[in-house]
């Protein structure tokens, strides 16, 4: 995708309010801790070792997963750091996805890609083999939605 096409694609997406964007970044940084409190989810990812890029479109995180645990989460960019797949969404999309009862069309990772509020890129194999894991992992802040101002 050219830079021009990418900009055109981004323009179709809902702009995110700055105050919400900061909260979304903060919530993302808290996901590894929430995962540690969800042993059943860690167990479902027991066969997963993966480097991926997750988070807000313009402030994603490099995430290293080993045996279902997040062993590293670092804000991008990191010089020459590789990733296999990327799932990034607008801050507005993350805020909506984390609402206790998300609105129709904002309630699923693939609903967000369909409405062009999120972008899924790269080698999708680890994402598809662990699709429910990633849906549940990225929904973890929903349980703590009161701490995410929208």
């Amino acid at each position: 995708m050219s830079a021009l096409q990418e900009n055109a694609c981004l323009k179709r997406m809902t702009p995110s309010p700055i105050s919400s964007a900061a909260a979304v970044i903060e919530a993302f940084a808290g996901i590894p801790g929430l995962l540690e409190q969800a042993p059943a989810l860690v167990a479902r990812g027991r066969a997963l070792d993966c480097e991926c890029l997750l988070g807000p479109l313009d402030h994603p995180f490099h995430v290293s997963i080993r045996s279902g645990r997040i062993v590293d989460l670092t804000p991008a960019p990191v010089l020459m750091r590789s990733w296999r797949f990327s799932y990034r969404a607008t801050s507005a999309a993350w805020s909506a996805y984390w609402e206790p009862a998300p609105r129709p069309g904002w309630h699923d990772l693939l609903a967000l890609t369909k409405r062009e509020e999120a972008r899924l890129e790269g080698d999708l194999h680890p994402f598809m083999t662990h699709l429910q894991y990633f849906k549940d992992l990225l929904a973890l802040p929903r349980r703590h939605a009161s701490s995410v101002p929208t």
């Binding site: 699923d108 699709l131 429910q132």
Partner: peptide, 8 residues
């Protein structure tokens, strides 16, 4: 994968 796709 079938279940995870339709879960949404």
């Amino acid at each position: 994968v079938c279940a995870a796709l339709v879960s949404g």
